[in-house]
Amino acid sequence: MMTASMSHLDALEAESIYIMREVAAECERPVMLYSIGKDSSVMMHLAFKAFYPEKPPFPFLHIDTGWKFHEMIEFRDRMAKEKGIEIIVYTNEEGARQGINPFDHGAAYTDIMKTQALRQALAKHSFTAAFGGARRDEEKSRAKERVFSFRNTAQAWEPKNQRPEMWRLYNAKLHAGESIRVFPLSNWTEKDIWQYILRENIPIVPLYFAKVRPVVYRDGNIIMVDDDRMRLNPGERVEQKSVRFRTLGCYPLTGGIESEADTLEKIVAETLAAVESERTSRVIDHEAAGSMERRKREGYF
């Protein structure tokens, strides 16, 4: 519902809260995926608003690949303490033991340390509904996904057979073994996210702000040297550059952009003027067309 006197952000906020309350009321074991990024930060902030004065009536879950930026992990632990919430941290230990890493294993790394890890974590805790911070403006297959997105007993998405989703009448009924991914930020855009962070003064990982950092230039991406596990290719050298990140993930797979924007106001201004979509900074999306849909069918968020 949108009325003339409500701002665009107010309407988006109300819609997300409505979705979260529906899940809390109808789903047996919900969990909120927490990736530590800006969208997750907005989603967590909304969850606190949705259930106030209660705390969100579900735990949070972080899939840790072992390759996240160090500042992300520090931020995660700080948020858990400050907010007084439970953040379940799950790592695919089997994959970690085998030494699966982003340098040697490419697509298999994403599959094993992210997709498989997520499936294992959801199964381990028997979660029936998992909130994710994905937005429809991020990618073409996301643009087609429902707010309540069903996963069959193999945790796979069936894009050709989605349940019709009319008005805001979400059908959350499940058979044993099925689950739902719920995307309360479906209708937000990247600009909305930044404007809302600014308006609500939501804490975010400092990596989003421009700062001089050690980086290498690789295949058109700017990769930050976050620790000594970073491997340099012949001819590459570490440079000190003022960069910031539009999205956050595993540091060897996340490209930064050269920027001087070190305040939220400057970031919003830059975002409004951006000519490249934020997906360009995710190395894993640069594979063939349809790579996101393929991963989602396999159980990726």
Partner: peptide, 30 residues
Amino acid sequence: LLDGLMAEREQGITIDVAYRYFSTEKRSFI
């Protein structure tokens, strides 16, 4: 730009509804 599912591209048809977000100076659209 819109037909984002693999089956849609293969068959050259639209199967499911896609949402696009854009703004001009005058208005935001979905």
